[in-house]
Design a protein around this nucleic acid. Structure first.
Lengths: 311, 311
DNA sequence: TATGGGTACAACCGTTGGCTGTGTCCGGGC
DNA sequence: GCCCGGACACAGCCAACGGTTGTACCCATA
């Protein structure tokens, strides 16, 4: 199906005749007739009843019309999503089921009129380059890995400290605990495949290991979160970390346990990053929304790396 | 823009390479390459970065992808709306802003998963023919105009008695009344352009006039509801009837008054009509929803024509 | 360095889709 | 009752689009 054909159908329905629609679309009446005929042939139904005074919609045509309009609206939005000027606010999140996505869902509920596009970049250096080039407007990240301070033109504010939880299978030694302390984790094998050296999340877990003497294994190929959860569920000696707000796609009752960690609670510090000169109006709205909607960070009893501060 | 091109884009994005997408779509790799290149040319942005191992989305591509998927979903629904088998429930209402639309909105809120298509037919004979032919599934109408009983194969149930209100401008003699009796209306000019003889709503107002000795003028061309409201607002000697649940599109504070009518309250009897043998599953859902959601009819102090009964 | 997998470019060609010219149908006016 | 004007459909023509085959190029890997 061709959107020009759909546009022709809508124009003809609005005009009530092919002739006028043809004038609007700057084609001949014959072209409109052909397009409509082709559309009717494709759909297998008659859309117009031709009369001497023009053409009026059949019942099928009436039913099709709102769908056709919607199609054109969606197409327009799709084109706008990649248009250089005045496009939807483009937000980078770490993972589609992570805490940043939750924040964006909240923002969308509060401001449904603001168009959003969500993308996922790999790590902070890519995100910074994209922010500086204008390809994205903002990013949720843990900022300022040691030795790599944020550039001058990038601003950031810490918006969410997300507590880490221990995820275990039902046969794990700690599976029955209602909460565990960081000290208790020493000696247990914590498995986090998919950690890529050099990324800001790798730096976070490096610091966590160094601070509390944990054992985190990043070995083995990363077959995706499904495979990870599968292995965790079946292996008594393995556990993993997971953000408190991460949404698991997992059959209920499979025996996975999410156990809070205390003394202190490691929190992952999400910051919002944006370019100093970005003029997108929705960016200011997002910033004030997050300032109002998110609690303060650095609460007592939590731990985050030294470098995870906002300016 | 061509939907096949969009489909190709989505397939390539999912596959991560053109070759595999080409196999899925049963075209050559070169065709996919051409289509993507054409799409990129149309949009003016690069959607993929070509690598030795395939093609991965750029940021623009990532932003465009969900819109492309939505486009395909909407297109599928659009085609389904005219497909003979298993199409959305097709409902005929008298007017887009009338009471039946309100009932359908309530049904949609209660059952958002049920796809609906709303059409508007002119009068009951057309609607009956459409129901019998299967072109529509159900219709909201006042049924059984005298001398034209419902055919054997059409069933109906009265679902809503909608009280009529008097609509006046601010300078009308009755504008200050909190309610008026039918007897008080005698002698006042009530203007209802657009009433077409032979329709079931014309029959309703004929009966109303005959029963209570009112003066209803249907003269003059019908320039649409905007022009009607305009005239009512500016003309002290004119008033009109309007369903209690009709939504007016009118600037607030323009001085239009909606005045309840009593002793008795004329009600417009909306019935749901459907074909005895219609197998559409959503039809049964709609019927039980309306049975639960709508109050009984024939309340004390109301009036409707004798013929407005359901079987 | 050779190889394999993946993409882009070129040439060819059938089909699509637009335009012009013409036929047909219907309603309104003389 | 006839004619005319307006509106849609059909036929023929042609350019442009889009698909296929063949081939070159690029890059990661062994």
């Amino acid at each position: 199906m061709d959107l020009d054909t759909v546009r022709t159908f809508v124009a003809a329905a609005d005009a009530g005749q092919f002739q006028e629609a043809a004038a609007e679309l700057a084609v001949t009446q014959q072209a409109v007739s052909k397009r409509i005929a082709a559309l009717e042939r494709n759909l297998g139904v008659r859309l117009f009843t031709r009369t001497a005074r023009g053409a009026e919609l059949t019942i099928d045509g009436q039913a099709f019309l709102p769908h056709a309009r919607e199609l054109l609206r969606v197409a327009e939005r799709a084109v706008a999503s990649v248009l250089p000027g005045r496009r939807p606010l483009r937000v980078d999140v770490i993972a589609s089921r992570g805490a940043a996505s939750g924040l964006m869902r909240g923002f969308h509920r509060a401001h449904p009129e603001i168009e959003l596009d969500v993308v996922m970049l790999f790590e902070i250096e890519t995100a910074l380059a994209a922010i500086r080039s204008g390809a994205i407007d903002t990013s949720f990240r843990a900022v300022a890995v040691p030795g790599r301070p944020l550039p001058e033109d990038i601003e950031s504010v810490r918006v969410l400290d997300e507590p880490l939880q221990l995820l275990t299978g039902p046969a794990h030694a700690l599976a029955g605990a209602r909460s565990v302390t960081v000290a208790q984790l020493a000696g247990h094998r914590i498995w986090m495949p998919g950690i890529v050296p050099g990324t800001e999340w790798a730096a976070y877990y490096d610091d966590l290991v160094a601070e509390f003497g944990l054992t985190i294994e990043a070995t083995g190929p990363n077959f995706g979160s499904d495979a990870l959860l599968d292995t965790i569920a079946d292996t008594p000696a393995l556990a993993t970390f997971m953000g408190e707000q991460t949404r698991l796609v997992w059959p209920a009752g499979h025996g996975l346990r999410r156990i809070p960690v205390t003394d202190p609670t490691p929190v992952y510090p999400h910051s919002l990053l944006w370019h100093r000169d970005n003029p997108h109006p929705a960016l200011a709205t997002l910033r004030s929304h997050l300032a109002a909607a998110t609690a303060g960070h650095g609460a007592a009893g939590t731990w985050a790396p030294d470098w995870a501060t906002s300016r």
